[in-house]
Amino acid sequence: MSATSPIENLSFLTPGNYPDDDPAAGLEDTLRLFEFGERLGFDGAWIRQRHLEHGVGSAAVFLAAAGQRTSRIQLGTAVIPIGYESPFRLAEDLSMADVLSGGRLQPGFSAGIPPHAELIGDLVFDGDWRGYDLSYGRIERSPTGGSSGSSPTCAAIIWATRTWSSSHPAIHNGRGCNRTIPAWSTGSGTAVGAPGRCAGRARTD
């Protein structure tokens, strides 16, 4: 019987819920949870990004705040739906939050039709969003995507980070990286990065 490997990295995930009548208190409670998790010795604290729900609507903003309340723990997202985002602007926001945290961000992404699109899609997008490419291809067309060999959901973030701060990139691509690569998911598969190794793609197309 082979010996089991010990757990080397332990993180927790929270939705960051808050009551309708006092969202500030709920967000403060979640920030305190991140602080408490760090004191307990957890390696990572992850937040969900949700829309039209009682939780964190902007993971980048929340993690920028969490980065100022913690000093060691890794800060992750599981996940940011790419569909509602501008890849370039999201790259800038995550890059800024990563630098402010001292390089501790572990962003995760999901591709495909975002939640509640049938309800708010016509208000969010210009034109008929049903004909838009909301797959990884949307990210691969960003600078350094496609032919560069970068992980598809990371391409724009890598580009913006290198442009904004070449001495402190937020993440690296999936080839020869030496930092944690984020999680990215499709409807039926997820690849999650772990310290000291590089995650591969999780694609079903």
Rank of each mutant, 00 (worst) to 15 (best):
A3I: 14
A3M: 15
T4A: 15
T4R: 14
P6L: 14
L10Y: 15
L10S: 10
S11W: 02
F12L: 15
P15Q: 11
P15G: 07
G16V: 09
D20Q: 12
D20I: 13
D22V: 01
P23Q: 05
A24E: 13
A24V: 11
A24Y: 11
G26W: 04
G26V: 07
L27D: 07
L27N: 07
T30A: 12
L31D: 01
L31M: 08
L31A: 10
L31W: 01
F34K: 11
F34Q: 14
F34M: 15
F36M: 09
E38K: 03
R39Y: 04
D43W: 01
G44W: 02
W46N: 06
W46C: 07
I47F: 08
Q49K: 14
L52R: 06
L52W: 09
E53R: 15
G55H: 09
G55Q: 12
G57D: 03
A60S: 15
A60V: 04
F62Q: 04
F62Y: 06
A64M: 05
A64P: 01
Q68A: 08
R72E: 10
I73Q: 03
T77Q: 05
T77H: 05
I80T: 13
P81A: 10
I82T: 12
G83K: 09
Y84V: 12
E85H: 10
S86L: 05
P87F: 10
F88Q: 12
R89V: 11
E92S: 05
D93S: 10
L94D: 02
S95T: 14
A97T: 03
V99M: 10
V99A: 15
S101C: 02
G102T: 01
G102A: 00
G103I: 00
R104C: 00
L105H: 00
L105N: 02
Q106N: 15
G108F: 04
A111T: 09
I113T: 13
I113W: 11
P115D: 13
P115E: 11
A117K: 11
E118L: 07
L123N: 15
V124Q: 07
F125E: 04
F125P: 15
F125Y: 15
F125W: 14
D126L: 11
D126R: 14
G127H: 05
G127K: 07
G127D: 03
G127R: 08
G127E: 03
D128G: 09
W129A: 12
W129E: 08
G131I: 05
G131V: 05
D133S: 06
S135I: 02
Y136T: 12
G137L: 08
R138Y: 06
E140G: 06
R141T: 10
S142Q: 13
T144E: 09
S147R: 14
S148W: 08
G149Y: 04
S150W: 07
S151F: 03
T153W: 12
I157M: 13
T161K: 01
T163S: 02
T163G: 01
S165E: 03
S165L: 07
S167R: 14
H168Q: 10
H168P: 00
P169I: 01
A170F: 00
A170T: 06
H172E: 04
N173F: 04
N173E: 13
G174A: 05
G176S: 10
R179I: 04
R179W: 00
P182Y: 01
A183V: 02
A183M: 11
S185I: 02
T186R: 10
S188L: 12
S188V: 12
G189Q: 14
G189V: 13
G189L: 14
A191I: 06
V192P: 05
A194K: 04
P195F: 10
G196V: 00
C198M: 12
R203W: 08
R203N: 09
